[in-house]
Design a protein around this nucleic acid. Structure first.
Lengths: 207, 207
DNA sequence: CGGAATCACTTGACACTGTAAAGACTAACC
DNA sequence: GGTTAGTCTTTACAGTGTCAAGTGATTCCG
């Protein structure tokens, strides 16, 4: 699923994005340094500034790249699947899979303090992605529970997967202290989805 | 619910924690600066280093303080309530309320790249907090669905609330673009919990 | 064909940052 | 009353983001 071009990206901008992702993976977003990115790319310390303006610009580019990958993976997750519940399950797996494969990209996606959340491309892909999720939940509502509050339910699913991604390290640690081993995150996503779907299907709004 | 002492904290360490939280609120965690904290506290730039070692130490102290507040609020959310579903609902509201009232503290709680996630106090309060949530979900299982996988369900609830906190800004933006207004986050948490509870109660594990 | 302009950087500069080391001042204690 | 411990400040230094100016190439155009 190499949606983010790994085959030695041509163009310095792409090289810099890849280097930035690697810096975040190696040292964490908290220790992110634009000069370190430049060093790894073998260019002068100001080269990233030419392409991305400032650090926020570079991280925003990374967020957009990650969001686009997420969107494409979610699209291919629903294609070829007909049952909307299976679609949602597949989306959930795709969500955490992208987050696991591209941790740096996904770490900045919702970090509005380090990216430019008003960027037009960023907003567009965000709308598209959520639209895809919402229409899947809508299909579940149509097929299984017409009284489901679709937008709320879609946001619930989204929040759950995002929370899982963020909390996974903590959960691993809890399991480690308890002496049990942590299941694969995609399987956890599937179990979460199964529980969520039970709720979506059986939920009756307040009368 | 002023669990984090706001009544002018005595002792420089407490003053520095409060100043650090304010810096994060004002400029974002991405622009956090320990020297700025010192300036706001009216002390020399190296004073925070004496109390907290380095920047990671200060942010870890903040995370612990936030986690302890969360734990206490969750405790008081369940006390006096008997129905476990109401307890869970109350916990969900408490979770997002703490995150809203102490955004800086809660922003660092799971940011393992900027805090010391191995800190003993941090781990202890994390275990206690999750234990409280898990026993509430256990009570729901006992009362409504003995076959519920409790640990998974508890982590689902936790992920959902954490995801909601993280995505709330994005949801606000979606609503703004759609021209509708965003409900209060505590009410959203309650709607989420209602959907989750439907799932917890109706879920049947794979045979 | 030759000059001008644009592109894609590099170099140099500056204010700011985290952190370590050493110094200073105060209070407590034997 | 001298020593010690605690709480900060001062000094120093390497590293950082970002801006302005400089440098070659490449492209465009008359």
């Amino acid at each position: 699923m190499e949606t983010i071009s790994t085959e030695d990206p041509t163009g310095l901008a792409a090289v810099l994005r890849a280097a930035a992702a690697q810096v975040i993976i190696d040292k964490g977003l908290g220790a992110f340094s634009i000069r370190e990115v430049a060093r790894r790319a073998g260019v002068s310390h100001a080269a990233p500034g030419y392409h991305f303006g400032d650090s926020q610009g570079l991280l925003t580019a990374l967020a957009i790249e990650g969001f686009e990958t997420l969107y494409r993976e979610m699209q291919s997750a629903v294609s070829g699947v007909t049952d909307p519940i299976e679609q949602l399950t597949s989306i959930g797996r795709a969500y955490v899979r992208v987050a696991t494969r591209f941790p740096a990209h996904c770490e900045v996606i919702f970090r509005e303090d380090v990216i430019d959340a008003g960027n037009a491309d960023y907003e567009r892909v965000g709308l598209e992605t959520f639209g895809l999720l919402e229409s899947t939940v809508q299909a579940i509502a149509d097929a299984y529970n017409p009284r489901l509050p679709v937008t709320t339910a879609a946001r619930l699913c989204w929040s759950t997967m995002q929370g899982l991604v963020e909390l996974e390290a903590k959960m691993r640690r809890l399991d480690e202290l308890a002496g049990v081993d942590t299941p694969n995150i995609e399987d956890t996503a599937e179990r979460f989805t199964a529980l969520l779907v039970s709720g979506l299907v059986h939920h009756r709004p307040d009368r």
